[in-house]
């Protein structure tokens, strides 16, 4: 374990130095990412500006959803670069090297690079989250703090799982499925709104298939002391973030399964 940590630190050091070598580019990237979220927020704001509020949701409450998504998504992105770029790793035959090392594949892929450019987004998400939490007047309790933390960690697990699933496809097709990116980004975009605005089938999709709602909408309902959506017991709200870990476990299993179908590249 301590060796694993040491190794991870070493990987991090290397990745930092590599990113610093192209310093101008790195700064541009971070700035770019920061501005991207700014633009996203502008869009949401424009929507609210024109139409007023979503029924039953104050701006602070929606900000809580937005904050949760935009805090956990960038953390997942920082960690998952190796999976995010996995398609090109496989195409270049570089995964051979990973397989030749006596270490867990997940550790090596996480260590491949720490995508620090996402820090800007993280800070912004954190700011919105604290704005939401300070603006909301609800009864604080230890359980609620725990639930929010759990939702955050669950969110990281969920987005990480999505990116792992995307990586898994690379074992079967060399086509660049950048559309999977739209899935993760689009998912993040979707989860920024309360699920109640979506038609029933979409709600079901985001709770049971790609359980984004389980780490945003449902725990937020519990924090705000609201009833569960029809068909779900109230207790389900508390356990919802756990679903994300199941999702991640399934995604990792799928990845392991894919490794058995890795075909390398002809040399």
């Amino acid at each position: 374990m301590s060796n694993a940590l040491r190794l991870y630190r070493r990987f991090l050091g290397i990745s930092l130095r590599a990113q610093m070598e192209y310093r101008a580019s790195f700064l541009m990237q971070s700035l770019g990412n920061f501005l991207i979220t700014g633009v996203e927020f502008l869009l949401i704001w424009a929507l609210y500006d024109r139409f007023g509020q979503v029924p039953g949701w104050s701006l602070a409450e929606v900000a809580l959803l937005y904050g949760l998504v935009n805090t956990s998504f960038p953390i997942a992105e920082v960690l998952s670069y190796g999976f995010d770029a996995f398609g090109s790793t496989v195409k270049a035959g570089e995964f051979d090297r990973v397989l030749l090392r006596p270490r867990s594949l997940v550790l090596q892929l996480i260590g491949q690079r720490l995508a620090l450019k996402n820090v800007g987004r993280f800070l912004q998400g954190l700011a919105v989250l604290s704005f939401a939490l300070s603006g909301l007047s609800f009864d604080w309790s230890a359980a609620k703090v725990l639930l929010i933390l759990l939702a955050l960690v669950g969110g990281v697990a969920l987005f990480f799982g999505l990116i792992v699933l995307q990586a898994t496809l690379a074992f079967w097709t060399t086509e660049s499925l950048e559309v999977m990116n739209t899935m993760t980004y689009g998912g993040a975009e979707t989860a920024q709104f309360p699920l109640s605005i979506y038609p029933a089938w979409l709600r079901t999709f985001f709770i049971f298939v790609v359980p984004l709602g389980c780490v945003t909408y449902l725990p937020v309902l519990a924090v705000l002391d609201r009833p569960a959506p029809a068909g779900l017991p109230d207790a389900a709200l508390l356990f919802a973030p756990g679903v994300a870990f199941v999702f991640l476990a399934v995604a990792l299993r799928a990845f392991q399964f894919g490794v058995g179908h890795y075909t390398s590249t002809g040399s």
């Binding site: 192209y22 101008a24 580019s25 790195f26 700064l27 541009m28 990237q29 971070s30 700035l31 770019g32 990412n33 501005l35 991207i36 633009v39 450019k117």
Partner: peptide
Amino acid sequence: TVAGDGITRLALI
């Protein structure tokens, strides 16, 4: 900007 995703991503968004 050789490794530059920066400008491109910003421009794209």
